[in-house]
Design a protein around this nucleic acid. Structure first.
Lengths: 235, 235
DNA sequence: GGTTTGGCCTGATATGGGTCAAGGCGCTTG
DNA sequence: CAAGCGCCTTGACCCATATCAGGCCAAACC
């Protein structure tokens, strides 16, 4: 299934839709767009290694990447799974430090690279932009903290349940009693690593949840039978 | 042991020494200082609860606080231990979200509260400041990521070893063969929680390390006999 | 002085989740 | 079509760490 059809993107529009840049003037967005460069990656290809020096940040146009820590024993720890229209790598730009994780395409992927000089310039000239950038980073920090809480205070099943509920389209608060369809964004292996689990454990948890009639699993298609009940699931 | 002697601090100097503000003009530091307010806390007193709305950030003048997630079963998860001259709570200022953790004094403590309006104003008027702020937040994010790596990829003993090495004065790189004295900043209970361990496990690990002649423990005083060997410690 | 309290250690036991090994299912490829 | 390869599942077993329970010591308090 090679993505042969010539894929055209409206880069300024894509950038303008980033949470970070929504309140930015179109003039500045265009400035960024002219400086950005596309990069195509085959599945399994590395965008950068842990230890490389960053020169900007990235936005995914189509495809998917994982950010992960490598580990001597082959077992890596996936920190995040990045999909279309999501950006990543903003924070490292501001430190003189190498990437703490590596980024690998987990499907054929097109990313946009925005060099950091453009960003630095914007910060210098547009205070609103700096403020937005700060808000964006804070949000990242917040969700990482959330992860720490999850890893340390919740059991494996609770982590899986939490993940499924997060994937629901209508966001968190909506805990209707009706069925909800969720499509897993990638393989169960990668999701398992993201949740600090082995694939075996994830498989068994899905099995248990299905046996308890809370969900049903058909490949990457998960049907949540009752979100409210699922949320209350314990052990 | 009540801190009765009248404690005077040079607030502008304290602020100027924050990593975030070092490159700031003294004029602006003074502006912040005039707006800041001291707050005294007894040991065990809460500075803020998880869920409170933030109005600024804090700098510890003397004493110590812990930042932690509460948990239904009484067992909390300590995210960070904050000592004198360290600041915290910068990130939440930029989001319209409540504190994701609570802050509790773990000894008699004096903190400085800097209202966020001052910061916002500085960002608007001084681009260099915004840049420093971004660098500061990025650093936080980086060290949180480090934590995630540690929790997911390292065994309990490795976490303890890593912690001890971090506490060494001469920073990380220096792995001399000589003895190094480390003083634990707080009780072993709190450190255990910070490392995602039970106090029992931490105690046993100290015991094992001491038996292997790598360290010796006298209360909060830990002597590292050979940093290089300790670093290589496995299992 | 006795008693309480908090911090810490130690031993016995339990268990969540990892590890190892085997096999199935569904792609892709020749 | 068969072969091969990823991805996933399943079962048996094991181990690192938690849990539970008891006890020690020093400081604080009556």
């Amino acid at each position: 299934m090679t993505q042969t059809n010539d894929f055209r993107v409206d880069i300024p529009e894509l950038l303008a839709r980033q949470p970070l840049f929504q309140q930015m003037s179109m003039e500045h967005v265009n400035l960024m767009a002219t400086q950005a460069r596309e990069k195509r990656l085959g599945r399994g290809e590395m965008l950068f290694q842990k230890g490389d020096m960053p020169r900007g940040f990235y936005v995914v146009i189509f495809g998917q990447l994982k950010l992960a820590f490598p580990s001597s024993a082959g077992n890596e720890k996936v920190v995040d799974i990045i999909g279309p229209k999501q950006s990543f790598g903003e924070a490292v730009m501001f430190m003189d430090k190498p990437y703490p994780v590596f980024a690998e395409a987990i499907s054929d992927t097109l990313v946009l690279h925005v060099p950091r000089d453009v960003i630095f310039e914007l910060i210098r000239t547009e205070p609103t932009f700096a403020h937005l950038m700060l808000a964006g980073l804070s949000l990242r920090l917040h969700s990482l903290l959330q992860d720490v809480e999850t890893y340390s205070l919740r059991s494996s099943a609770q982590r899986v349940v939490g993940y499924l509920l997060q994937q629901c389209p209508g966001d968190v608060g909506a805990l209707g009693e009706g069925e909800i369809q969720v499509t897993l964004p990638t393989t169960k292996q990668i999701i398992a690593s993201r949740l600090n689990l082995t694939p075996e454990t994830l498989s068994r948890i899905f099995h248990d949840l299905a046996e308890a009639k809370l969900i049903s699993v058909q490949g990457k298609q998960i049907t949540i039978n009752n979100a409210r009940q699922l949320r209350e699931y314990d052990i």
